[in-house]
Design a protein around this nucleic acid. Structure first.
Lengths: 272, 272
DNA sequence: AAACGATGTTTCGTTATATGAAACGACTGA
DNA sequence: TCAGTCGTTTCATATAACGAAACATCGTTT
């Protein structure tokens, strides 16, 4: 049984939203680029390859790799001498994820949601000013849509995002609608009044959808998660082919997502 | 429903097994220590705190953080100005994990194993010369034993490890048995002939267990996963209280673990 | 109200230290 | 045997990381 996995091409969580700073340490810069290069490659690389890819000399990269290895961020194949990313990245990634305790709480509910709907289930959280996929439970259909942990969503062009516009703090909504609204496809609405009207609708019915927005033929269905103070802390959603999640979605799908969001909210102390 | 989670204190995947090298770049060293510090803290830290914890001055750490932020490895809370670990670590951790395709293949089978036994299910892989937990599906008992992704196991003092001694390459077995054998508890056997005898037993019956070895009252039950060439590529195991996984384990538990390992092996091209 | 302590941030001169050319040993394939 | 990799080491040079001190803002405390 082989699964077809479509990796949706999106900007990953870059520092793009953070204000760019001019100062910095160039040597660290190079080393971090090396880590990233190794992690995103699927195969180990030779020292020369790495050096060329980063526009640096071998000794320089060599020294950096030495330090990276000492810290577990990289790793050298003892047989071939080639370099690859280290497991420390996995360890630290796991640690970062666990800092958000909504995620741990939500996991069993996400699995239940996936079991009910057979579609991938995801949960998003605000990190800084970015909306990030924190956990994902894979669906059971043949075609899978990849929004792996760490993917960043646009607020105006995704189901997750519009849940945040509808139920999140007003400052966020205003800031997003004031800025430029990038269009991913013809389906993305970039007119502010149109979005405002949709936000009202989402608030009224309690869920959001985004057919054909990120990729053609894909739909998502999202609902808000609140904490004990009634503040929005996360959003859960199912993602799948329009064939399985039509527009509008099936009543039982809406019910499943909303129920899941409510269950996680309850587990986080939300009442009423 | 609150789960009690016992985090088993083990050495994490350090570079300890890699040969230590003398040369290296000290500035990168400092920066990596900063990343690690931030990732392992649950709360954001102030610049001063970080500087003091690492024995450096504020401007130095500040410059490093600037670069780390630019790359997404760190992140600054816009409101408080405090620093925390960035989502890039999650993204890269995910990418590193996906380089090992046994993991992806095994996931549904691990879930099935968990469902059958109600115990946590884990899969380990050899990374370099270290045995690392690559994936884990949480159990359904009240008390959970935490061996999160990235945890390193000793070969002689764990069920996973002894599966590798029994079915892995001979060089590995010889090397491990030649080295010092650290004792975690009274239950750990450190005598080479004793271990050799147990390895034979494991080979004969096809599974390994490790009662009371890492923590008192905990047992683990592991079995080997082979690829198309018949080489050991991973080990799967269930971990749980001795109350649930007795010594020797229940026949149906053994069966479940062995079946799971066989299923993953088959999925990886293993025949017969 | 004013002084203090804590943030994060910037500047600047000094020197530590990261750098790259070149050479080295070891290995693989032609 | 030679030419081509690979990773590793050395060393003189100048880049660029460093830390002391000062700055700008917050809160809190006096």
């Amino acid at each position: 049984m082989q699964k077809i996995v479509l990796n949706i091409e999106m900007e990953k969580a870059e520092a793009s939203a953070q204000r760019p700073r001019e100062s910095g340490t160039s040597t660290l810069d190079l080393a971090l680029r090396a880590v990233e290069l190794l992690a995103l490659r699927h195969a180990p690389m030779s020292l020369g390859e790495i050096a060329k890819a980063l526009g640096a000399t071998k000794p320089t990269i060599y020294r950096h790799l030495t330090t990276l290895i000492r810290h577990g961020f990289a790793w050298q194949d003892a047989r071939t001498g080639y370099y690859a990313a280290g497991v420390k990245l996995m360890t630290l990634g796991e640690a970062v994820q666990q800092q958000f305790d909504v995620i741990a709480t939500s996991k069993p509910h996400l699995i239940q949601l996936r079991d009910k709907t057979s579609q991938s289930a995801t949960i998003c959280t605000l990190v800084g000013e970015e909306l990030i996929v924190m956990e994902r439970v894979e669906g059971r259909s043949i075609i899978e849509f990849g929004t792996p942990r760490g993917t960043r969503f646009d607020f105006h062009a995704s189901a997750h995002g519009r849940v945040w516009l509808a139920f999140g703090p007003h400052e966020l909504t205003d800031k997003v609608l004031a800025g430029p609204l990038k269009s991913w496809s013809g389906e993305v609405r970039t007119s502010v009044p149109t979005i405002r009207r949709e936000i009202e609708l989402i608030r009224a019915r309690g869920w959001a959808m985004a057919p054909n927005e990120m990729v053609d033929g894909v739909n998502a269905l999202a609902a808000p998660v609140f904490d004990h103070r009634g503040e929005l802390i996360a959003s859960v959603a199912i993602v799948g082919s329009l064939q399985f999640i039509p527009s509008p979605p099936l009543p039982e799908q809406i019910d499943a997502v909303v129920q899941c969001a409510r269950a996680v909210s309850s587990a986080c102390g939300w009442r009423r």
